[in-house]
Simulated assay, not measured.
Amino acid sequence: MKVISELLSHATRDGDGVNISRVADFRGRMFDPFLMIDELKSDEESDFIGGFPPHPHRGIETFTYIIKGGFEHKDQMGNRKVISGGDVQWMSTGFGVIHSEMPVADNEGMHGFQIWVNMAAADKLRPARYQDSVATGLPVLENTSGASLKVLAGNWVLADQSAASPVGPLASDAAVADIRLSAGGTARIERTQYEKLFVYIHTGSINGYSAGQALLLDPQQAIEMHTDVDSGALIFSGTPLREPVAHMGPFVMNTQEELHQAVRDYQAGRFGAIDL
């Protein structure tokens, strides 16, 4: 695979003091249509116990994937669900949502992601949508070379096997998969139908790159992965929007005036409220 550029995640905090590692592109120059990848990975309860109390969003899709641990999700649409290890949750926020994600107490620690996908200008004010994989599960593809690929969003092929996620479709043809390689494992994946392709390594090391690195790839070349240790990475692909991005906190629109209107609508209660 051809690596075009590299980006290292940086430590930050969000919600009620939750420690996360973040890769962000709010200028739309590197990962369009993806805006942000937040990784929460800790065995220390103090790093995540505060969770994410009620807060709003507009103009984006939030995609949550939990590897271990869990969060209880609530939103103003009446959805209330525990998202735990192996599951995903998708919210196409459109006009607006208010939601909370609070950790479920256990002894596993926490490892998960929240991914932001930008929405096209024409869709940013449509009604909100919600889905998760709790009832359906997610398909897993395997090869004979020590690789398995969990299909989180979109359509994927591995070793002449194909599968589609039951969740979505996400905006901008966004697709996400979690690939795992055992020590000595290899994998080859082609995504030439997409303009944007990158990986984020979350465990071990792959092709000499370490956990916490995001690698922007040439989509016209196959992804060829190998490792000497048990490793994992998220693979992202999508179609760039190439639209102006105006970002302020939980809102992503196309102009500053649209951001100000989002704030006014939220303050006026037009997003609704969570029934606690």
Rank of each mutant, 00 (worst) to 15 (best):
S46W: 08
G85S: 14
P54Q: 04
P33T: 12
A120G: 05
I66K: 00
D38Y: 05
F26E: 02
V23H: 00
D43P: 00
H111Y: 10
V23R: 00
F71I: 09
M77A: 07
N118I: 03
E108T: 13
D87G: 07
H57N: 07
L125W: 02
R126Q: 14
D47T: 05
K41V: 00
R29P: 10
G96F: 02
P33V: 04
W90D: 02
I60Q: 04
I49M: 09
M102W: 09
M102V: 10
T93G: 05
D38R: 08
K124R: 09
G109V: 06
M30Y: 13
V97Y: 02
E44C: 06
M102T: 15
G86R: 06
G96E: 10
R27N: 12
Y65Q: 03
G28M: 11
F95I: 04
P56K: 04
G69Q: 04
I98E: 04
T64N: 11
V88P: 00
N79Y: 11
K68S: 11
Q89L: 08
S84K: 15
H111F: 01
G85W: 05
P53H: 10
G94L: 04
S46R: 15
T64F: 10
A121I: 05
I67E: 01
H73M: 11
G70C: 07
R126P: 00
S42H: 13
F52T: 15
M77E: 07
K74R: 15
W116Q: 01
Y65K: 02
A122Y: 10
V104S: 09
K41A: 03
M77H: 03
R29F: 15
P103E: 06
V82T: 06
I60H: 02
E108V: 13
I115P: 03
F31M: 14
E39Q: 12
F31I: 06
S100M: 13
E101F: 10
D43I: 08
P33L: 08
K81F: 13
M77C: 08
M36Q: 07
P53A: 06
G78A: 09
G109M: 02
G112K: 03
P33N: 11
L40V: 04
D106Y: 08
N79S: 12
P103L: 07
I37G: 01
A105E: 15
F34T: 00
G85N: 14
V104D: 05
M77N: 11
H57D: 05
M102L: 14
G69T: 08
A122T: 13
M30D: 14
T64I: 12
G50I: 00
E101P: 06
E45C: 03
R126A: 13
F95S: 11
Q89R: 06
G109T: 07
